[in-house]
Nucleic acid binder design. Structure first.
Length: 317
DNA sequence: AACCCGTGGTA
DNA sequence: TTACCAAGGGT
């Protein structure tokens, strides 16, 4: 069975199979060189800010939907200082329909923290990145690797699935990324930091384009000859089925509709406008209260609501 | 640990 | 059409 031994060369050992002589990452890197998408945040001119913004936007959100928003965002706010200088509501408005708008709020907060703590420069240490609002394990490592070309295991859902299949021989891994996953992936990374950073992007690309969740395109996979899952006959998942996500009729849908009204308005809106988007008053009020609690909306007067920090809003109380 | 948080494309 | 899924984070 193929062993994923990264760059380790066992002195004196004679490999039994040719495939074992080549590091896993080399096969993926070669493939990546041929098919990698030309995404704007992968270009050097994107800079750390461009990378950070892309990573936050890409959380649970497909690349194609992120592209136009990222372009507009970077054009308007070329750095964290420019974003921090504007009201949070502007970030929420620019976020558009990307979903999970709390990310916009946290990105605005992160920009402010970067200005305050780091003089406006994106920090390059994992600790400092992790301390920023909305930046978790994945995003901190992604920024350190892709923006600063450091050697860190970067494990998202794509890499998690790739490892589950290619290394562990399972159809899918646990929902959460574990410390063990990070160690496994780090063992696959080349020693040279720049090459490791490129390999991290390559792993994610492989998971996103070939080793996809539903119908993996194994015929075009650069590691098919040593994929443990494929060699085991592509066994189906044995874990418990995931709970259905559901959306219609949930508070999330109501929040989405309420926020869409605020986002599309120039300034404060009357409560009647919000009432019109959902019939059931108890759920509607709960959703609005949730938006207020989260700081995604503010009350600016009797029966008037707006996005946070809106200049018009503060004048109209 | 389990649950909450949006939105739209695809089969 | 329903169901699945998408570069997670916070609590």
């Amino acid at each position: 069975m193929a062993v994923m031994d990264g760059n380790q060369d066992t002195a004196g050992a004679v490999a039994s199979w040719a495939v074992d002589e080549r590091p896993f990452a080399d096969d993926v890197l070669e493939w990546y060189g041929l098919v990698a998408r030309d995404l704007p945040w992968r270009r050097p001119e994107a800079g750390p800010w461009g990378v950070l913004v892309s990573e936050v936007m890409l959380q649970q959100t497909p690349v194609n939907r992120v592209l136009p928003v990222w372009e507009a965002w970077l054009a308007r706010w070329p750095g964290p200082a420019a974003l921090a200088a504007e009201p949070a509501g502007e970030a929420v408005r620019m976020w558009g329909r990307l979903g999970y708008p709390r990310r916009a709020l946290r990105l605005h907060q992160a920009a402010a923290a970067i200005v305050e703590r780091h003089g406006g420069a994106i920090p390059d240490r994992l600790d400092d990145l992790l301390a920023l609002p909305g930046i978790g394990t994945y995003t901190a490592r992604a920024v350190a690797a892709f923006a600063f070309r450091q050697r860190h295991a970067v494990v998202d859902v794509n890499v998690r699935r790739l490892v589950a299949r290619a290394v562990e021989g399972a159809a899918e891994g646990p929902a959460a990324v574990s410390r063990r996953d990070l160690a496994t992936v780090e063992n696959l990374l080349p020693a040279d930091p720049e090459t490791a950073a490129r390999a991290s992007a390559a792993f994610m690309e492989l998971g996103a384009l070939v080793c996809v969740a539903r119908a993996p395109r194994c015929a075009g996979c650069p590691v098919r000859e040593r994929c443990a899952w494929l060699l085991a006959g592509s066994p189906p998942s044995d874990g418990p089925a995931r709970r259905p996500q559901g959306y219609a009729g949930t508070d999330r849908q109501v929040r989405g509709r309420l926020l869409a009204v605020l986002r599309d308005a120039d300034g404060p809106v009357d409560a009647a406008l919000l009432d019109a988007v959902w019939d059931e008053p108890v759920q509607r009020d709960r959703a609005l209260r949730g938006l207020l609690d989260d700081g995604l909306a503010v009350a600016v007067g009797p029966g008037r609501y707006a996005l946070p920090g809106d200049v018009t809003a503060s004048l109209s109380v």
